[in-house]
Design a protein around this nucleic acid. Structure first.
Lengths: 193, 193
DNA sequence: CAGTGGGGCTAATTTTATTAGCTTCTTGGC
DNA sequence: GCCAAGAAGCTAATAAAATTAGCCCCACTG
């Protein structure tokens, strides 16, 4: 019997394909093994069960997302950077919904690879915010706001959560424009508890 | 053997408890049956399998969320209304993470009960936006922005997605303040494609 | 060329969902 | 108050998936 030539990366890459094509909830060791032409238990030589596959996929996806965002941000600042990063974020989620789902559901603080990859994302976002003049605590609050809006929009769009018959592209553009306004006036809008 | 006195509502209520306590991904017919002191297949007399349980839970949760939001909004307008609705949204998600997860993952356009319940949520949000002077297409865009931000923030918070050691309450307050700014200046910030 | 280790396998167990078909309680009509 | 019918529960059987154990053979290394 010829070797199948599996490695952890090959297995995780196939998992990414399954997740994107069939949905993250249908990512299954059985499906991955089948597509690789291999018996299910063979995968255990390369990944630590289903959980390991999920966290491996999460790390892959966060790394890809960080790449895409960094590329979008390079050479831009202010509104230009915001628009480019936001568009890149949404495109990635729409193109790879299964991978993206893994980043949210399989996040594990103790995984150093994953942590490194998500630091890259954070670095890019903070760089964009710096071009708005935001640093320190303000930047953290703004980063959370930005991430919430982008994550929320993309997640809801992928889940089919926008029922009304209005152009979704347009809504996204307006949300990004609103974020631009909010970031511009950030320092002068402290919350009043 | 005495009857257990199950009804669809009882089963779904137990499912809600399981989802909130153990997480939506561990919501299982087996767990619900066990907690109700009943054999697993008995549940099929009341719900249409796991899928039916999930959509039932989604409908319950959207209804509860609509209730909570409507109560928070009543008698308020403008920033007051926004702050109250946002706080209510976040509280609900933090108190009932499993139910809330069902609303996102088990949304089904063809389910009329579910549709009615989510229309209630939409109505409340649009009412808040009307107090900002937003109607029609602008209001739809703004509603999507609002929902994205609230959904994104709460989802990430529940998933433990905010790693940095900065107060999450404070970040939320600032996000809501930023949304208030954005809504106030909405009509004058068209996107420029 | 031989030994060793890794990469693949099959077999067995567990958990869950689902369907089929049986039994028994409850209830409504006489 | 009885009896028929249906609802509500059950057990049994089947199928999919994850996981563990243990085997076997191919591919390098010495």
């Amino acid at each position: 019997m010829p070797r199948a030539g599996l490695t952890p990366d090959v297995v995780v890459a196939e998992a990414a394909a399954v997740a994107d094509e069939s949905g993250y909830e249908r990512l299954t060791l059985a499906a991955v093994a089948c597509r690789l032409g291999v018996a299910l238990p063979s995968l255990y030589k390369h990944v630590r069960g289903l959980g390991g596959l999920q966290t491996g996929l999460a790390t892959l996806a966060v790394r890809e997302l960080g790449d895409v965002l960094t590329r979008a941000a390079v050479g831009r600042s202010g509104r230009d950077a915001l628009v480019a990063v936001a568009a890149a974020y949404r495109s990635y989620v729409l193109a790879h919904p299964g991978r993206y789902a893994a980043t949210v559901r399989a996040a594990r603080p103790e995984d150093l690879d994953h942590k490194g990859a998500s630091d890259e994302v954070l670095r890019t976002v903070l760089a964009v915010l710096r071009s708005y003049g935001l640093e320190g605590g303000d930047a953290v609050d703004a980063a959370r706001t930005l991430r919430s809006a982008l994550h929320g929009f993309a997640s809801l769009e992928v889940a089919g959560g926008f029922g009304l018959p209005r152009d979704v592209d347009r809504s996204f553009d307006r949300m990004v424009a609103a974020l631009d306004v909010a970031l511009r006036s950030w320092p002068s809008t402290p919350p009043d508890r």
